[in-house]
Each structure stands twice: as structure tokens, then as C-alpha cells.
């Protein structure tokens, strides 16, 4: 029982950064923009988030730092890919290369420092319920925020007019433009939302997952988040399933290493990456009839006057 609870808690913790980053990217992609710079925005969010928390002693301010940093990074992307109509794949790669360098530069003086990690919720009576108590009522704020974020995004995309317009931009920017919607402005906001989420997801790592900063600590989570968006068929509900599945794979391999299964640890560590490839292949294959991706995803749009 204790073990099951511990595993569920660990899976939630490992899934949360994936879920937050992927939710942001889902909105960006729904508007028709492919931002491959999630890893770069996350790692800068991690460095700035830790810096903020270490300087002020407040996890909340640290998270804000991460959000602002991720948003600033995404604005560079928006300027390039939307303002200057540069190829989105190349721009996203550039953003990741820049982000890795910047985070090393910002985080260098914080390596080796420790902070008090984010506190976990504690409601007397509820948190003590066996098995489900700590899972439901004993998480840190990031976990609850991630759930609220997905629900909010689902509601926005499918239940509001603004969400409908955003999806229209992603499916057919020429028609959306002809109807008078400011396609580039809407996309800029979507990119910024993606950046804010990636920054928050990055900040989660040194603020709640491990209470210290190491360079390169995102370890490809930004790329896995991108794969999750494909996995989800661009639907928030399936994103939750995907994120928790991947969190489970990560925790499973960690536990297997701990139990001393006779497989070298490096092979176990490679599992999440291999799982990503296998899932991408199986999904793409199952979908061979027609793509569920936003129709205008990744295409350049320069409005004619």
C-alpha cells in the first residue's frame, strides 16, 4: 500500500512538468505555429526560476521568474517566425540552442546552492486518508496548477468564441484573415502562452522536483512534451493520459534500477526516449487515414493587404 502510494506520487511529480509544457505547446500549435524551442524555453525557465527563488526565498516568485523568462524567450520566437516569416523549424532549433547557452550563463553561480522546495498541501483529516489522501490532498501547488491549466485550456478551446477563432487560425489562416481576424496577433498570444507554460514547467524542476539547479536538468523533457502534443492528437484530454503514461515510464525505470534488475541502468534510462519513438510511430501509423494536426501547422503566413 505504502509503495503504491509512493509510486503514484512519484509519477505525478514526474508527469507535471511534461503536462504543463505540453499544454502550452498544444495551444501554440492549435493556432498553427510549431515552436520547437520548448526545451530551450524550459531550461531558461529552470535557471531563472531557481535564481528568483534563491534570491527572494519565495517559491512563488521563483515560479513567476520562470514564467516571465519563458515568455521572453517565446517573444524572440514570435518576432522571428511571425514578424519576419522565418522557417519555424529552424527558429525553434535556434531558440533551443540559445536557451541551453543562456541557462548555463544564468545558472552558473547557482550550481551547488540549495533552496527549500515547494511545500505540499496538508489538510488535517483529508491528507491522512490512506492511499488517496496524499495523492489528492497532499501535492505541491504546481500539480494542482497543471490540472487547472489543462481544464482551462480545454474550456477555452472548445467552449469560448476566442478559442474557436484561435483554432480557425490554426486550420486555415487565409480564411481567418479574410474574415478579419488578426492572425499574427492571435498567434503571437498563443506563442506567448506556450512560452509561459514552458517557463513554468522548467521552473518546476528546481523548485519542486529537486531543490537545486544543475545545467541541462531538463534532459530532453521539452522534446518529450512536443511528442506528447502529437500523441494527444492536439486534444487536452488525451494530453493528460499521455503525460501520466510517460511519467509512469520514467518512474518505472527508476524503480527498476533501484530494485537491481540485471539490466544496465543506461538501458533503463533510455526507455522514455525509446517509448517516445515507438508511440510516435504507432500513432502516426494508426492515423494513416488522415492527419489530426491543425491544417496550417508550421506554415508561414504573410498577410496580403
Amino acid at each position: 500500500m505504502e509503495l503504491v502510494e509512493a509510486i503514484i506520487l512519484a509519477v505525478l511529480a514526474a508527469s507535471t512538468p511534461l503536462l504543463i509544457a505540453a499544454t502550452g505547446e498544444l495551444v501554440t500549435e492549435r493556432s498553427g505555429v510549431l515552436n520547437l524551442g520548448v526545451e530551450g524555453m524550459m531550461i531558461v525557465g529552470a535557471a531563472c526560476g531557481f535564481a528568483g527563488a534563491w534570491l527572494t526565498g519565495s517559491i512563488f516568485i521563483g515560479a513567476l521568474f520562470g514564467i516571465v523568462a519563458g515568455t521572453m524567450m517565446s517573444l524572440i520566437f514570435a518576432l522571428m517566425a511571425l514578424g519576419l516569416a522565418v522557417n519555424q523549424v529552424a527558429t525553434g532549433l535556434a531558440l533551443t540552442i540559445l536557451g541551453v547557452g543562456l541557462s548555463g550563463l544564468i545558472g552558473a553561480r547557482f550550481v551547488g546552492e540549495r533552496i527549500t522546495p515547494a511545500v505540499h498541501l496538508s489538510i488535517p483529516g483529508l491528507t491522512d486518508i490512506p492511499l488517496v489522501g496524499r495523492v489528492l490532498f497532499g501535492e505541491d501547488a504546481f500539480v494542482y496548477v497543471s490540472i487547472a491549466l489543462v481544464v482551462g485550456v480545454w474550456w477555452f478551446l472548445y467552449r469560448t468564441r476566442a478559442g474557436l477563432i484561435l483554432r480557425a487560425c490554426g486550420d486555415n489562416h487565409v480564411s481567418a484573415h479574410a474574415l478579419g481576424y488578426p492572425v499574427l496577433r492571435i498567434r503571437t498570444f498563443a506563442v506567448m502562452f506556450g512560452g509561459a507554460c514552458a517557463g513554468l514547467a522548467g521552473a518546476y524542476l528546481p523548485l519542486a522536483y529537486t531543490p537545486f539547479f544543475i545545467p541541462g536538468m531538463t534532459a530532453g523533457r521539452g522534446w518529450i512534451a512536443l511528442a506528447l502534443v502529437v500523441f494527444s492528437s492536439w486534444r487536452p484530454g488525451r494530453l493528460v493520459v499521455g503525460a501520466y503514461l510517460f511519467g509512469a515510464v520514467t518512474i518505472l525505470q527508476l524503480h527498476a534500477q533501484g530494485w537491481g534488475v540485471g539490466i544496465p541502468s543506461q538501458f533503463m534510462s533510455a526507455l522514455p526516449y525509446l517509448a517516445t519513438i515507438i508511440v510516435l510511430v504507432m500513432l502516426s501509423r494508426a492515423r494513416s487515414g488522415g492527419s489530426t494536426a491543425p491544417a496550417a501547422l508550421g506554415t508561414v503566413f504573410v498577410p496580403d493587404r
Partner: peptide
Amino acid sequence: FGASEILTSLMLVY
């Protein structure tokens, strides 16, 4: 299978 070569080639780096 139509799987994004960007993501799969990157995963294989790790």
C-alpha cells in the same frame, strides 16, 4: 509511418 523525423532523430541522440 509518417512519424515526425524531427522528434525521432532527436530522441535517438539521448
